[in-house]
């Protein structure tokens, strides 16, 4: 863990607090208790911040700066599942929600600055505060909906529509992602991706 000035950690906690308040209002005291569980960490490009298996199974990350790529390995090939960027929350949903060992790699595509907390430290706060429990429920529901939505898109939308959707959702970071990962995410070859990009 990096030792950083008190005023910086306060700033980072307030960035996280601001992001959480977008879901629902939470009393200041409860919100402070929640964000205070998060510690500052730095990672270098190519670091794996969550690995397959149960390593760091119960950590939750909030990205301050940088992008991550989530991928799993199937028959020696890397399949890219999604990308996370500034103000996104990253966690190992497999183990946290279903108890199975994690299959994903969360890789830093750039040098990363994050806030990280242990789920075990956050749970007691949810017990004590109804507004925090409400916040947690809203966050889980949103993530569940996103998961179902991205499964739906992958199953039903043709590559060109998925490309449009991706360009809209990820417009702010698409220049920072190597195209081969975008192709993998869309389930198309790099050549097909080039053709799609040439049309737009």
């Amino acid at each position: 863990m990096s030792k950083i000035p008190e005023k910086d950690i306060t700033l980072y906690h307030s960035i996280l607090a601001k992001e959480l308040l977008q879901y629902t209002s939470v009393p200041e005291q409860d919100l402070q208790a929640f964000v205070s569980c998060f510690e500052f960490h730095e990672y270098k490009k190519k670091d794996i911040i969550i690995a397959p298996g149960n390593t760091d199974a119960f950590k939750i990350f909030f990205i301050l700066k940088g992008i991550t790529r989530i991928y799993y390995v199937l028959e020696d090939k890397e399949i890219t599942v999604s990308f996370k960027m500034e103000n996104n929350v990253v966690y190992n949903g497999f183990t946290i929600f279903s108890g199975v060992p994690n299959i994903d790699n969360h890789e830093a595509l750039e040098d990363l600055q994050v806030l990280a907390a242990n789920i075990d430290n956050l749970e007691p706060l949810l017990y004590k505060s109804h507004p925090l429990e409400h916040l947690a429920r809203k966050i889980v529901e949103k993530n569940y909906s996103s998961f179902i939505r991205s499964n739906y898109n992958r199953m039903f939308l043709p590559a060109e529509e998925r490309y449009d959707y991706f360009m809209r959702e990820m417009s702010s970071i698409v220049n920072r992602i190597p195209l081969k990962y975008v192709a993998s995410y869309l389930g198309i070859t790099p050549e097909t991706l080039s053709r799609l990009r040439a049309k737009h």
Partner: peptide
């Protein structure tokens, strides 16, 4: 509300688990 959070977590977990099973 806690029950609700846990319930949606169970649904989410079941979906993720199914994805893993089909893949691996």
């Amino acid at each position: 509300e806690r029950l609700g959070r846990r319930l949606i977590s169970v649904y989410y977990g079941a979906c993720m688990r199914k994805t893993v099973d089909v893949l691996f």
